[in-house]
Computed example of a mutant assay.
Amino acid sequence: MSREIGALGGDTTRMAVGGDSAGGNLSAVLANELPGTFALQALMYPATDLTHPFPPYEENGEGLLLTKDALTWFQGHYLDGTGADLKDPRVSPLYAETATLAAAPAALVITAGYDPLRDEGEAYAQRLRDAGVAVEHVNYDGQVYLFFSMPAAIPDARDATERVAAALRGAWA
């Protein structure tokens, strides 16, 4: 990948990966599968454990934008009947080996207090931290899933956006 980026005139030392929800899942998987490629992973309420063992899945799974039914629907389409093991780290990065996580880039993990994915994002941040990765985890207690995409209306979303920008500047300094 670095060779292709360099051939296009890109700076391979200034690459980052990031996304929210399923995009956070894919970003975490990429960071784990391509060690040494990224300077930062920015994960906004990432889906990191598709077994959904954490309390917010039930507590926040109805009436707050992202529902349990919607998660089931998305997960079914994502896996599309592949029979994938939900604990495969390419599906649920929370289950990656510690050595894999130790090779991951620094991380900014943003979670929302009223999100069914909150605790799996927090657990992933802790696993990275335990593996020796520099992690900044910020939970926006009063927010719901998708708040990050509304910076014009939600001050916490503006703050979160500024945190991502600051993390990128820091990673690329």
Rank of each mutant, 00 (worst) to 15 (best):
A112W: 03
H137K: 13
A152D: 00
L79I: 08
A102V: 09
A157I: 06
G83K: 11
A102K: 00
Q75P: 07
E120M: 09
T111C: 13
A157Y: 00
Y95V: 01
G76Q: 07
G81A: 10
D115H: 09
D119Y: 09
D130E: 14
Y124N: 01
D156I: 08
R129V: 07
S149R: 05
A134M: 15
A104F: 08
A96P: 07
A112S: 11
T82P: 04
P155C: 15
G83Y: 08
G113V: 08
V109N: 03
G132C: 15
F148I: 10
F148L: 15
E162W: 07
I154F: 06
Y95E: 00
D80T: 03
A157S: 07
Q126M: 13
A123Q: 05
L146R: 11
E162K: 07
P116Q: 09
L108F: 03
Q126D: 15
L101Y: 02
Y114K: 06
T161Y: 10
R129S: 12
L117M: 05
P151S: 11
E136Y: 12
Y140Q: 14
I110G: 08
Y140I: 09
E162R: 06
G132W: 12
G132K: 05
M150S: 07
R90F: 02
A134R: 00
F147K: 04
E136T: 15
T82E: 09
A123H: 06
A96K: 04
A106G: 07
E120R: 03
D115F: 11
P116S: 07
W73K: 13
A84L: 01
D88C: 08
L86M: 06
P116I: 11
D119Q: 12
A160D: 01
Y78W: 14
E97M: 15
S149D: 09
V138A: 10
D88M: 07
A84R: 01
V133D: 00
Q75F: 10
D130H: 07
H77L: 15
E120D: 11
A152E: 00
A96S: 14
